[in-house]
Amino acid sequence: MYGKKASELVKEFASSEPGQLSAFNNDLFSQVLEECNGHLLHLQSLLRKMQEDGPDNQTSRNADHFGALMHHLSIVRNKRCLMAYVYNRAEVIQHLGWTIERVLPEEIEEKLSNPEKDYFKNHSATLQSYMSELDLDLAVDMVPPKDPYIKVRVLEEIGNVVLSDQFANLARHAILFLRRTDAEHYISQGLMEELSS
């Protein structure tokens, strides 16, 4: 049946959890493109046949006309599926730019196709430059804090770092009070956890 492969591609995206990406399915993607080329060949041969049959036959409702129509519709459908696949993945990638800054962890990066990697890089660079122009970090928590400091536990060895108000040794399992703004991106990267008091 026409358009089967394309809808498989869309289904694959739909079955992955929202906000998560599965590996870019290059194989299936190029199979759909091939299918489109096949449709185009059929379409062209039918159009040629219609032209040969004479001008009076071109607009009438004959069998060739409907054959060509079906191929045309299949191409349009395949295009929609491919576009939706790429577009929706791009949305997820854009969202990644807000939650994890700049560097993608390996296990996510290997799922992206090359253009998608570039897209992520450029998008997060744009975000960064916009934020530095504004001199404002737009990715911080939207709810105003009750206390500027929070208690955190370090989950993975980070080492000595310079924070906005102190030098800190972020050794594994250390429990300390940090400025919320300092701690936030460590938490979102999974290097710390917040301890509720």
Partner: peptide
């Protein structure tokens, strides 16, 4: 939306149909 995943999948459901015209080359 053109890119709506659910809309695309919904349109993939099979419906019974009867051809009224002959169709070539499919």
């Amino acid at each position: 939306n053109y890119f709506d995943i659910d809309d695309i999948l919904a349109e993939d459901e099979l419906v019974p149909a009867t051809f009224r015209e002959a169709t070539n080359g499919v």
